[in-house]
Design a binder for these strands. Structure first.
Length: 106
DNA sequence: TGGGTGACTAAGT
DNA sequence: CACTTAGCCACCC
C-alpha cells in the first residue's frame, strides 16, 4: 500500500526515466526492474505515449540500440551530452552500455 | 471479461 | 553481432 496519489505504473516509469543523469542510459528492462516489474515492453508503451516529457533517448534496448525509429533523434542528444557511443561498419550507432549504463541503486 | 498490441528480452541459429 | 522465435507484462477497446 502506501502508493503515492497518482503513482501508477506510468507515473513511476516517467519518474525513473527523468532520474537518469545526462551522459548515462538505462535499458527498458532496467527501468522495469526499478519498478519491481519485468514489463520492459510496457515501459516502451509508456514512452511512446508519454515519453515526450522525459529524456526518452536515455532509455535504450539491451543491445545498446536506441528506441526503434528514433535512432537519428537520439543520436543528436547523445552527441550533445557526450554519451559514450560505438559504431558499426554501416554507420549504425549504439550506446556503449559497458560505460554508459546507469544503475540508480548504485 | 477477453483478446490484441507493442519505443522489449533472452535464447538459439 | 545480426536475424528469428517464443515468452512477458501492462495498456486499450
Amino acid at each position: 500500500m502506501s502508493q503515492q496519489p497518482g503513482a501508477d505504473f506510468i507515473s513511476r516509469v516517467l519518474d525513473v526515466v527523468a532520474s537518469i543523469p545526462p551522459g548515462r542510459v538505462m535499458t527498458y528492462g532496467d527501468v522495469a526492474a526499478a519498478l519491481g516489474s519485468r514489463a520492459a515492453r510496457a515501459v516502451g508503451q509508456v514512452m511512446s505515449h508519454y515519453g515526450s516529457d522525459v529524456p526518452w533517448w536515455r532509455v535504450v534496448r539491451s543491445s545498446g540500440h536506441p528506441a526503434i525509429d528514433h535512432e537519428a533523434r537520439a543520436l543528436e542528444y547523445f552527441r550533445a551530452e557526450g554519451t559514450p557511443l560505438k559504431w558499426s561498419r554501416d554507420g549504425v550507432h549504439r550506446v556503449d552500455l559497458v560505460v554508459a549504463r546507469y544503475d540508480p541503486a548504485r
